[in-house]
Design a protein around this nucleic acid. Structure first.
Length: 637
RNA sequence: GCCACCGUAGCUCAGAUGGCAGAGCACCUCACUCGUAAUGAGGAUGUCCGCGGUUCGAUUCCGCGCGGUGGCUCCA
């Protein structure tokens, strides 16, 4: 008999005598409530299986299935059940890896053919059998040598490769029924604890994420603590799909694409044309306010210039080229080149700096066909691009200025965003000193502003480190919008200089930055963010005049003229239709204000606005309504 | 680019072991002049994404393209 001193974290310890004590027994002894919801236990901070023994001095924390860690364990265990089912149904399949992910899990397989959607139902059936059998997950430690022999005997070469690469003395494996998988754990006590899961889709995935390696077949699934939570998740997904910007873009007359025009090319319909115009107007104002200068470069530039900048060498695959009078030209994928030449067009003094050149620049990039998606990834787009050329001493202040700019703009659109900083990649240009200085400047700017950020080591551009600002779409996928990038290459290659106080030429520093990013992508995220119901200040149509009967058309026309004359974006529905129909249609177009014009309004010369929410405002004069809209716009709501 | 799925009327979608292609909405005409999410009746609507192949016959089966969606990779 040994004596154990155990405690629930933060509570008094208890002593107990036992030969051996599992986590589960310890929790029982400590009288933990709701044990049927406990899937693992943290012992002195580290998660382990419920049935694994605890040490003689242990501080315990139950891991409940609904907790983040509990769900991770559930999802990971479900992926093992998936692998077992697939091995049972498809002899000769090899298993690779199967982690838990947000809301679910996946498992990658190597099989003679890829899996298809219609394989999923029978796999699910098999998984349900495994769950019903309530097989325990049994952990076993063994030397790597033994594990390699074990997996070799099963023909599981990927597992052998993983163990080889781990280079550990020993590894752990988990077995449920006839299926054994290399795994660190922990796992559920048994398969019966899986109460709600669903296989969702299949996808191809490269082994180890390397496109030169084998294409595996991935099966995705979701799993939740109970059926209600699973259903809730599936419902939320369905709701999110209704906000899909491609769908809303078509319904609201914002944009469309055409097979006959080409992939990744957006055609803007009237409402989208207006939306773009409003955003561009907004951007120009905001940039001028912050000391930027408006510039504009041509769409195609001689290929020699792209060679000089390094784009031809590094970015040719993504560029379109054309030939005019036997001279090769490249269609710009970025706007920086003309900006460089503008800077060089005269000698610059330190007194002239910083220069902030802003351009709503149209760029073309040949993105690989498989990555295109709606407005979020296209081949032709407009960037709200600027290049800030400054002295090294000004760098910190300029970065902070851009971060503040991003913050202001994101607040206007009520976006929450995530910051990521990317450091020096393997393949890069420039000295370590430059890199360190610029990376420090980026990080310092964020630290000084108490901003939270994630570091992506080695993810920087080849010419410099960057801060990326990511927004999320309806389905919670992250999209890079704003970015702030330091660049050492271009000032060097274009031999940019300024004359400093010492009368000598010095090399300026350059920041390449966008705030919204690409207008296309931003609008895509924006549509999903507002579910198509734009605030009044950027609504393509702010008000719709709805007449009740034909008698009201003359006054309706007068209101239309008055509002148009006051720069209100207004349309009118004078059709001989029932008011209910007109309201419904305006409602589906998500127009902020409907102006009902009946006999009452015609006689008293005013309007009765109806809001998108269904609420009616009191009768008011045309003037009062114009003021109302103008106030909305001033407040950007 | 790679893997899977998908492409039928302007829109949303149904359809057939391979045999003249359907519904609702929208559209057009007529009636109704109407107060806050669909008035009624009638009418017209197709290269079933494209090109080849198999077949007596292909929108359906096969191949190749084009386009879309979900992933992987990429995203200077």
């Amino acid at each position: 008999m040994k004596s154990f001193r155990i405690a629930i974290k933060g509570q008094p310890a208890k002593d107990i005598e036992a030969e051996n004590l599992s986590g589960l027994e310890a929790l029982q002894y400590l009288d933990v409530k709701g044990l049927d919801k406990v899937v693992a236990v943290r012992v002195n901070g580290g998660s382990q299986d419920l049935l694994a023994p605890v040490g003689t001095e242990s501080e315990l924390e139950p891991v409940f299935i609904e907790s983040d860690d509990g769900l991770k364990i559930l999802r990971h265990s479900t992926s093992h059940v998936l692998a077992m089912a697939v091995k049972a149904l498809f002899p000769g399949v090899q298993v690779t890896i199967g982690p838990s992910i947000e809301n679910g899990f996946y498992y990658d397989f190597d099989y003679e053919r890829p899996f298809r959607d219609n394989d999923l139902p029978k796999i699910e059936e098999n998984m349900k059998e495994i769950i019903k059998a309530n097989l325990p997950f049994k952990r076993e430690e063994m030397t790597s040598r033994e594990a390699i022999d074990l997996f070799k005997s099963q023909g599981e070469s990927y597992k052998v490769e993983i163990i080889d690469d781990l280079g550990e003395e020993s590894v752990s494996v988990y077995t449920q029924g006839s299926f054994t998988d290399l795994c660190r754990g922990p796992h559920l006590p048994s398969t019966g604890r899986i109460k709600a899961f669903k296989l969702t889709h299949v996808a191809g995935a490269y082994w180890r994420g390397d496109e030169k390696k084998a294409m595996l077949s991935r099966i995705y699934g979701v799993a939740f603590a109970d059926k209600k939570a699973l259903k809730g998740h599936l419902n939320r997904l369905e709701e999110a799909r209704k906000r899909d910007h491609v769908k809303l873009g078509k319904q609201l007359g914002i944009f469309s694409t055409y097979e006959e025009i080409g992939a990744g090319m957006i055609v803007w319909h009237p409402k989208g044309g207006m939306l773009r115009h409003l955003l561009e107007e907004f951007e120009i104002k905001e940039h001028l306010k912050r000391g930027y200068e408006l510039v504009k470069g041509p769409l195609i530039l001689k290929t020699e210039l792209w060679e000089k900048s390094g784009h031809f060498e590094n970015y040719r695959e993504n560029m379109y080229f054309t030939e005019i009078d036997k001279q090769s030209y490249g269609i710009k994928p970025m706007n920086c080149l003309s900006h460089m030449l503008i800077y060089k067009s005269g000698i610059k003094s330190y007194r002239d700096l910083p220069k902030r050149y802003f351009e709503l620049g149209l760029v073309h990039r040949h993105e690989r066909s498989g990555v295109l998606r709606g407005l979020l990834r296209v081949r032709e787009f407009t960037q709200d691009d600027a290049h800030i050329i400054c002295t090294p001493e000004q760098l910190d202040g300029e970065i902070k200025g851009v971060l503040a700019f991003v913050k202001d703009v994101m607040e206007i659109f009520q976006f929450s965003y995530e910051l990521e900083v990317s450091t020096k990649p393997e393949k890069s240009i420039g000295s370590d000193e430059d890199w360190n200085q610029a990376t420090d400047a980026l990080i310092k700017a964020m630290d000084d502003n108490d901003l939270e950020y994630q570091v992506n080591e080695g993810d920087g551009a080849f010419y410099g480190p960057k801060i990326d600002v990511k927004l999320r779409d309806a389905l919670d996928r992250k999209w890079q919008c704003a970015t702030i990038q330091c660049d050492f290459t271009l000032p060097e290659r274009f031999d940019l200089s300024y004359i400093d106080k010492d009368g000598q030429k010095h090399r300026p520093v350059m920041i390449h930055r966008v705030i919204l990013g690409a207008l296309e992508r931003f609008i895509g995220v924006l549509i999903e963010h507002y579910a198509g119901a734009f605030p009044v200040w950027i609504s393509p149509v702010q008000a719709m005049i709805l007449t009740v009967t034909d008698r009201n058309i003359p006054y309706g026309k007068k209101v239309l003229e008055t509002l148009r004359g006051s720069d209100i974006r207004v349309e009118a529905d004078f059709r001989n239709e029932k008011l209910g129909l007109k309201v419904r249609e305006a409602q589906m177009q998500k127009i902020p204000y409907m102006l009902i014009i009946g006999d009452r309004e015609s006689e008293k010369e005013g309007v009765t606005p109806r809001l998108r929410s269904g609420k009616n405002l009191p009768f008011m004069t045309e003037r009062e309504f114009i003021d109302l809209i103008n106030e909305d716009c001033r407040q950007r709501r």
